[in-house]
């Protein structure tokens, strides 16, 4: 049980996917303009992560022992189809959200956090349950980072900032400071 908690907290806070491993930076900088949209994209990404975790566990257990060189190709195909499914689901359930997410919804396919999740889970030989804890933790961490960033950027729109720093440069520096703050979690667990 305790290792499940460690996997979950580790993926969410200590080794936060976005701020520690630099994964999923495209949506992190692209969609973090509005708080609500950011939160929902985080949820969609978490959902894709959970499905990917399940199916990559199935792949590593049943298929990959026979064809190890297919690892990357099979993972990416699974991720692409899951994203396609989520896209259809959101389009049906909430057309407004579908429009707000725009190009970033299909781009979840090329969100490196998801492929990284599948690969790490395989290389660490997590069981099905451990993999699920890992996926939920990672998704939660990604959502947390995205929401924090969106909140900060909404506030910044009201502030006067020098023209030269506006745009990506400012986001980058905020992300640096956030990442420093997350380094504070590093002392939470001593063993990894």
């Amino acid at each position: 049980m305790s290792d499940l908690v460690w996997i979950f907290v580790g993926a969410m806070l200590v080794n936060n996917f976005t701020l520690y491993y630099f994964l999923g930076l495209c949506p992190f900088f692209g969609v973090s303009g509005r708080l609500q949209v950011a939160f929902r994209l985080g949820m969609a990404t978490t959902f894709v992560m959970v499905i990917t975790s399940l199916s990559s566990w199935a792949l590593t257990t049943f298929v990959l022992p026979y064809a190890p060189y297919l690892k990357l190709i099979s993972f990416i195909v699974v991720i692409a189809s899951t994203v396609q499914f989520v896209e259809m689901l959101i389009k049906k359930v909430s057309p407004v959200l579908f429009r707000a997410l725009g190009i970033y919804l299909p781009l979840i396919t090329t969100n490196c956090a998801i492929l990284f999740l599948a690969l790490t889970q395989t290389s660490k030989e997590y069981s099905l349950i451990q993999g699920l804890a890992f996926a939920v933790g990672a998704g939660g961490g990604f959502t947390l980072a995205l929401v924090l960033m969106a909140g900060l950027r909404e506030e910044l729109e009201l502030a006067t900032i020098p023209a030269v720093i506006k745009g990506t440069a400012l986001s980058m520096i905020i992300a640096g400071i956030l990442s420093m703050a997350f380094m504070g979690f590093a002392g939470m667990f001593s063993a990894s």
């Binding site: 520690y20 630099f22 640096g176 400071i177």
Partner: peptide
């Protein structure tokens, strides 16, 4: 990790 963000921010 924070250094990566800060250096790229500086270059941009």
């Amino acid at each position: 990790p924070p250094g990566g963000f800060l250096v790229l921010g500086g270059i941009l």
